[in-house]
Computed example of a mutant assay.
Amino acid sequence: MSHTAHIPSHRKPRRGASKVAIRAGVAGGVLSTIAVAGAAGPANAAEPVTETIEMPTLTSGLAGAVAQSADATQRAALNFELSAQENAAAVKAAQAARKAKAEAERKAEAQRAEAKKKAEAAARAKAEATARASRTAERTTLAPTSTSSDSGSSSGTATTPKATTKASGSAGALIAFAQAQLGDAYVMGSTGPNAWDCSGLVQAAYRQIGVDLPRVSQDQSTAGTQVSLSNLQPGDILYWGGAGSAYHTAIYIGGGEFIGAQNPSSGVVQKSLDWDPPSGAVRVL
């Protein structure tokens, strides 16, 4: 027995003939393909085929999207700011327009009031002038009366009352007040203490004895009982114009005389009835 008989052999087992044939065939096919390619290679060497495929870069696309989003956000913010400014300007313009309208209306109202006041003053002056002119012819028929406030004489005509004695009591108090204002200025709408209009003086005189008269001549001409001009008593209210539509009032003080705030040129005066005959009279006391 050989001394190597117990050592296993390391040689690979032989492959089968079929496997060797198959592998030989495959190898031959591959070598044939390489040969063909090698033969065709020199003919196509002048025109190498190259193609580059560019893959999209994710990082650059993301940066562009972010930039577009930031730009859109900035434009939106700018549009919002412009819209806010436009709204604020519109509100400010509306407020200014309302203020201007209110101021214009106030001025227009003041102008209308002033125009009305002037128109009333002009109408009153015209009515007074017309009334005096219409009575000018009648004055020649009146008998002269005393110029004293205490006594006098008359012809007894219907429009000229007889002289009366010095008034006393309430009538004396209001007449004394009226006499104290002689020489004061006439200012339309004034009620003293140094300037009066006709009805303001009459109202103030009666207030001295606790009698509250209406403010204007129209109302004062109906404030008491209508009396005849031939039956006057001291303290009676004389009026010029119609009862309820009088444009002038004064106070009869007796003796055929009256005290009244006549006009801006005369002021508060004491005159006889024939100087400016009244239209009627009312008695309050």
Rank of each mutant, 00 (worst) to 15 (best):
M1R: 13
T4S: 13
A5F: 04
H6F: 15
I7M: 06
P8T: 09
S9W: 01
A17V: 15
K19I: 14
K19Q: 15
V26K: 07
V26S: 11
G28Y: 13
G29R: 01
V30K: 03
V30W: 06
L31G: 11
L31F: 09
I34T: 14
I34H: 00
A40C: 09
P42G: 10
A43C: 03
N44F: 13
E47I: 07
V49Y: 06
T50S: 01
T52A: 09
M55W: 04
P56L: 11
T57W: 01
T59S: 11
G61V: 14
A63L: 12
G64M: 10
V66Q: 12
Q68F: 00
S69L: 08
S69P: 02
A70R: 01
Q74R: 09
R75L: 11
N87Y: 07
A88Y: 00
K92N: 13
A100W: 09
E109H: 03
R112M: 00
A113K: 03
A115H: 00
R124M: 14
S134K: 13
S134M: 06
R135I: 12
T136H: 08
A137F: 03
A143Q: 05
S146Q: 05
S151L: 05
G152D: 14
G152S: 15
S153K: 07
S153Q: 08
S155A: 15
A158C: 08
T159D: 12
A163L: 11
T165L: 10
A167H: 02
A167E: 03
S168E: 15
A173D: 15
L174K: 04
A180T: 12
L182E: 10
D184V: 07
D184W: 05
Y186P: 07
T191P: 05
T191M: 14
W196P: 07
W196A: 08
W196F: 13
S199A: 14
A204I: 02
Y206H: 15
Y206F: 15
Q208C: 10
I209A: 06
V211W: 01
V211R: 03
D212I: 08
S217F: 05
S221M: 09
A223P: 05
A223W: 00
S230K: 06
N231W: 11
P234F: 03
P234E: 02
P234T: 13
G235P: 05
I237V: 14
Y239Q: 11
Y239C: 12
W240V: 02
G241M: 07
G241A: 12
A243R: 09
G244R: 08
H248R: 10
H248D: 10
A250H: 01
G255Q: 08
I259T: 01
G260S: 00
G260F: 00
N263Y: 01
N263I: 07
G267D: 00
Q270I: 03
K271N: 14
S272C: 08
D276W: 00
P277Y: 06
P278S: 07
S279F: 05
A281G: 02
L285A: 08
L285H: 03
